[in-house]
Amino acid sequence: MAKSCTRRRRGSATGLVVSNAAIRPRFYRLQLRIQGSGSALFAQTQPGQFAELQVSSLSVPPADQIPDGLADVAQRQIILRRPFSYCDIEVENADSVRLDFLYCVLGAGTVRMTTLKEGDPVSILGPLGNGFSVPEGKKAAVLVAGGMGAPPMQHLARSLSENHGDIALTVIAGARDAESIPFATEPDGKDDAIIEEFAPFAGEQIVTTDDGSFGRKGFVTVHLENWLTGAKYRPSEIVIFSCGPEAMLAEVAKVAEKHNVDCQVSMERMMACGIGLCQSCAVDVKQAGSKGAVYKLCCKDGPVFDSKDVVFGGKRQNI
């Protein structure tokens, strides 16, 4: 036998669907409950970690329930799991934990997920990867979310407010347009627009859309830059946590570096396994003390990386 007696960090379990509701035409919130012995493992989930859901055995919804443009890809016979960040977690009791996911319907797997109904079983691997960590001596945290990068930020906001109450929280959340904000917000176009999900935790919210159809107009990075310029904290007292498209993360990293502020980014890659077996999810990471870069695994070493270490995507998107 192997001499391993360390506690398991991760594992597989079956979650039962509590609810799976469309919060917007293409965005769903899925709640799973894990009960019994498997729940303890998932109760330890840290913000920024993710899960792999088995969705290949789910049926394709009837044609009239498939979103426009996806009828074709929906028919693909899929085999791999799909990775999703936790957007919230509630430890209900010693034997039960509720895991929330926010997903965008994009292709064969997520189309199938829309058919999940209360009580359906879903096989889940987790908690996977390394999440966000709070460095010593911070007084302010800025959460910068772009588009579908918002889900883990909700979990992080709750966790920070519960475990680091002394850290002031600012959320800067943006998307292309009102429709692309993955929360159930009513478009109102006002400067003080907020996202309900962040309201209990964040002292300050700056909500933006590229076209101004909800909240303020403009990119999150411009608002981040303004916020940092006017901040009443020393750079060493601030930390930025960010999740979103890679091009946005690259900009956030630049702004952070310019202002000499610590910054952690959550990266995405195509993943075949999510548990460090396949080497598919490489992220280019600078090597300490050398000009070269090495590949780290997004699923195992990440998905959260120090922004200073990451060599962001070149000419083409990585996913």
């Binding site: 085999i79 195509m270 075949a272 990585n318």
Partner: peptide, 24 residues
């Protein structure tokens, strides 16, 4: 070996393609 740039995998009907490039 660092292996190939990403994307290194893509799923296809009932299968997947990989071009890991012997990263090890």
């Amino acid at each position: 070996r660092k292996g190939n740039p990403t994307p290194r995998i893509v799923e296809t009907s009932s299968g997947m393609l990989n071009a890991i490039g012997l990263a090890n």
